[in-house]
Design a protein around this nucleic acid. Structure first.
Lengths: 139, 139
DNA sequence: TTCATTTCTGTAATTATTACAATTATAAAA
DNA sequence: TTTTATAATTGTAATAATTACAGAAATGAA
């Protein structure tokens, strides 16, 4: 993923007015690439921004997604996660420890005939299983 | 996907006692491979099973998933969809018409090095974009 | 300073899902 | 056939995630 030097500039370039809350939320995302939920973001930030509202977190993230600087990760049905890395990459969720690992994959190798003439906007790949650590632990 | 000849037998083989509700719900799934939500299943079945409870639909689907004859499809964060085709296959969701198209892909082509030693249980691939029909319509 | 616009906040409403207790159905045993 | 135990279904209440919305605060230009 491309390194982001300056949060403020990055927001402005995406057409987002860099308010205090937006800067803090986006900084949180790039410092926590472990795909946090709204609740995690809110709980971790509210000590530093006591007036923060959960609605603001929701609104801001939706805005980031619209502007293309954040993507939504849907692995479990009841928890929406957010990722400041908007490049196409896969996620592996370990069913033992719950950890989510990023990985890269070659999209062009997929070679899907059935949707050849479709216009692709986003590709999401996630894999569930047992990670190496947990595999070794339980043996 | 493997053709299912007899719902009752299919349930028994999966270790599921074939109650009336279970048979009807599973038949609905194999007749509606367009990945219905709990709400769709409930609304479509309740005219035929007036006593049907939404809780039963939830319980039954969870049971089917546990027993491996149904898989969960997570494309949009707020709607869990169900698929009686448990084979590994991809889903394409058109952002114009909302249609979900199935497609097959070659998992081994993904060639993922970062999770080489991980134990893979399920692979989920979904693509968002514009389907051929909608692409032609809007031009 | 005023005014218009945008952003943020808090509460209430909505929706999906789960928990749980009571009822009903099923099937084996007496 | 009746009894009994177990499993499945149902309805309601509770929970959790998300959205709607109106008012307050902040921003920035006139």
């Amino acid at each position: 993923m491309k390194q982001i030097q300056n949060t403020k500039t990055h927001l402005i370039e995406a057409g987002i007015k860099p308010s205090y809350q937006r800067i803090k939320i986006f900084e949180y995302l790039i410092e926590n690439l472990n795909h946090p939920t709204v609740d995690m973001i809110y709980k971790d930030l509210v000590p530093y921004i006591p007036t923060l509202s959960k609605t603001t977190v929701y609104n801001t993230l939706k805005f980031f997604v619209d502007k293309g600087i954040t993507q939504i990760i849907n692995i479990e049905n009841n928890e929406t996660r957010y990722d400041a890395d908007t490049s196409t990459h896969g996620h592996f969720k370990c069913i033992k420890c719950g950890n989510i690992y990023d990985f890269s994959f070659n999209e062009s190798n997929l070679n899907i005939k059935q949707i050849e003439n479709f216009e692709i906007k986003q590709t999401h790949l996630y894999i569930k299983g047992v990670c190496e650590k947990c595999k070794n632990k339980n043996n």
